[in-house]
């Protein structure tokens, strides 16, 4: 109990592991968001084929276990398609991103459906292209509904990045496990549970930071939305006589 803290040398190695964890997280987050947007919009397409394809992807990505997908990506895909197997970082990020995209697409779809239909109709009336309608009218309003579940999903992906240690990427979980197996060589023996507790705390801190970032953006989008709905100043309100 006297030493909950590890040596600074070990923290330096854990910091390297943290960078790998954050790298995988960032790569899979970017891919996940792109896939979410793409398939979330495709799920609402007018064409049956496009809708069906998006549904198939979403069901696949949500139905398969992330760990199985990761192992298929890291071991089976390179052999089947003749890809270089050395680049585990990219393969692992793609696996996690594919997984995130399935859940994210459902979030985006729900959020787009929550925007009142009149908004889309108005933008059609204003002769905006489909892209403009999505970019300037629908998504900014859907953002309020997207952000809270997206924050939770990002934390789920952070938890998922621990799995990459199993395909021998040296992230936090990998390095902590290495400390345990190398413990016999170390001069001072740290109890194993303290090692794992340290790893858990690092993950917890990262999750809280992600949470804070999403809270900040939630507050910003909400503030924008509130200001737009503020009652008009008195001078802009039509005189009582003009109202039918």
């Amino acid at each position: 109990m006297d030493q909950l803290i590890l040596s600074s040398d070990r923290y330096a190695r854990l910091w390297e592991g943290t960078q790998i964890t954050l790298g995988v997280l960032a790569a899979s987050f970017v891919l996940g968001v792109v896939l979410s947007l793409l398939f979330g919009v495709m799920r609402l397409s007018d064409r049956r084929f496009v809708r069906g394809f998006a549904l198939a992807y979403v069901e696949f990505a949500r139905g398969i276990s992330s760990i199985v997908l990761l192992f298929i990506m890291a071991y089976a895909v390179p052999i089947l398609f003749g890809l270089p197997q050395e680049n585990v970082f990219i393969l692992a990020s793609v696996a996690l991103g594919l997984n995130m995209g399935g859940y994210g697409a459902e979030i985006i779809r729900g959020a787009i459906e929550s925007v009142p239909k009149g908004q889309s109709e108005a933008s059609v009336a204003l002769n905006l292209t489909n892209m403009q309608r999505l970019r300037f009218i629908v998504l900014p309003q859907a953002m309020r509904v997207i952000l809270p579940p997206m924050g939770n999903l990002t934390i789920e992906i952070l938890k998922g990045t621990a799995l990459v240690s199993l395909v021998s990427l040296s992230d936090i979980a990998f390095r902590i496990d290495l400390f345990r197996t190398n413990a016999a060589l170390a001069e001072t023996r740290t109890p194993d549970w303290i090692l794992y507790l340290n790893a858990l705390v690092i993950y917890f801190v990262i999750a809280q930071i992600i949470n804070g970032i999403f809270r900040y953006f939630e507050r910003r989008t909400n503030a924008k939305y509130e200001s737009r709905n503020r009652p008009l100043p008195a001078s802009d309100v039509a005189p009582a006589g003009m109202v039918k």
């Binding site: 934390i155 952070l158 938890k159 998922g160 990045t161 621990a162 799995l163 240690s165 199993l166 936090i172 979980a173 902590i176 496990d177 345990r180 109890p191 194993d192 549970w193 303290i194 090692l195 794992y196 507790l197 790893a199 858990l200 993950y203 917890f204 999750a207 809280q208 949470n211």
Partner: peptide
């Protein structure tokens, strides 16, 4: 809720014997 299940399993299986 915000820490990976994998590390929690390691904690239970490999960490707890030291206690």
């Amino acid at each position: 809720r915000s820490t990976p299940l994998l590390v929690q399993l390691f904690f239970l299986y490999y960490g707890l014997p030291s206690l």
